[in-house]
Design a protein around this nucleic acid. Structure first.
Lengths: 184, 184
DNA sequence: CCCTTATTGTTAGTAACTACCAGTGCGGTA
DNA sequence: TACCGCACTGGTAGTTACTAACAATAAGGG
């Protein structure tokens, strides 16, 4: 609930134009309570709980395929389930993340954490440091391509299909043999 | 000079354990002077002027090759000239960027800016929005792979060859047909 | 010698965030 | 009913990054 009030105020008056005290007042709680639930002001926008979603899907992909294919298909599938509900809140948050430098930076840093989860989810490759390095490179590249798709999706106001956009971005980066409807 | 004092103090006492006033005092200037030269505390570590370096190299690559190959070779070449001088200062800054969350986030956000420069440097593709999207996806993926190589390089204390690591990361993400000495 | 300009310093303020302590409701135990 | 932890919330005071507005100093050019 606090997050809903925060995003609404951020959209109305801008991220920098809204203080944490404003959020607390709008939500009817004290500033201390806000800080307890969201350690930083940025977390009011960034908090999201679909991290393990992707990692679980990674582990479910067949191990024989190339890394970028396994990761890419997991990202496309995750995006599909993510955009099932109401896109409006997700879009509002995403637009804030893209337009506000501080949020954009933290959002990209969260990718860094997600990358570690993906590498761990890939499983047995992690024992060999060289294989782990290759997995990290592939994962970071896939996440970056996905982020490009997210930016495009926000620019289109969510009218285009997000999984399709991600598949297209992956195809542009890694070649047309990537999965998804946009690979053609 | 202010930056040199800042990095030294950050390494000695930690980033969060050093105030901007400490940096100002060590450099023999007032805190205001520090803020005038470095808009944020993070810039004391992040300020770097090799952005146009990469963009210029992009424009110099042959236009016939695939996007990731053009971008990748430019990144490898840029890294080669970058690691010519004294690696120690670069390594210290890089280690701070990786270990400090705030710096890591801002560093990744700088990649976002560099990505735009690369897309612009690619030239005529930018007119078609679909081509620009593909270029952005390829550029972001290449930069992410390079970042993975940077992390590995810092973990090895700069002992391994950075251009070689970048080439290996690109090869892991995009296949073995990427340029550089580490392609095999 | 005076004027312009660039750089630096000083002061006062805002806002994010923290440490520390206090109050409130709530289920379990005697 | 009285007592006791326990999770959540609130208040206070402080630190720190950062900004705005104005003064001072120093260099160069007429």
């Amino acid at each position: 609930m606090i997050q809903a009030h925060a995003v609404r105020l951020f959209v109305e008056h801008g991220y920098d134009g809204t203080t944490v005290n404003d959020v607390a007042e709008a939500a009817g709680v004290s500033p201390m309570t806000v800080y307890r639930h969201f350690p930083t002001k940025e977390d009011l926008v960034l908090v999201d709980q679909n991290g393990p979603l992707v990692a679980d899907r990674i582990a479910a992909t067949p191990a024989g395929q190339p890394l970028v294919r396994r990761i890419g298909s997991a990202l496309v599938d995750s995006a599909r389930t993510l955009t099932d509900g109401d896109d409006r809140f997700l879009l509002a948050r995403l637009r804030l993340m893209i337009s506000t430098p501080a949020l954009r930076a933290r959002h990209l840093d969260n990718h860094y954490v997600l990358q570690q989860a993906i590498v761990d989810g890939l499983g047995d490759e992690a024992v060999d440091p060289d294989a782990a390095f290759q997995a990290a490179a592939a994962a970071s590249a896939c996440l970056a391509a996905m982020h490009t798709a997210l930016v495009r999706w926000a620019k289109d106001d969510g009218r285009t299909d997000l999984p399709d956009l991600i598949a297209k971005a992956l195809a542009a980066a890694f070649g047309d043999d990537t999965p998804g409807t946009g690979g053609r």
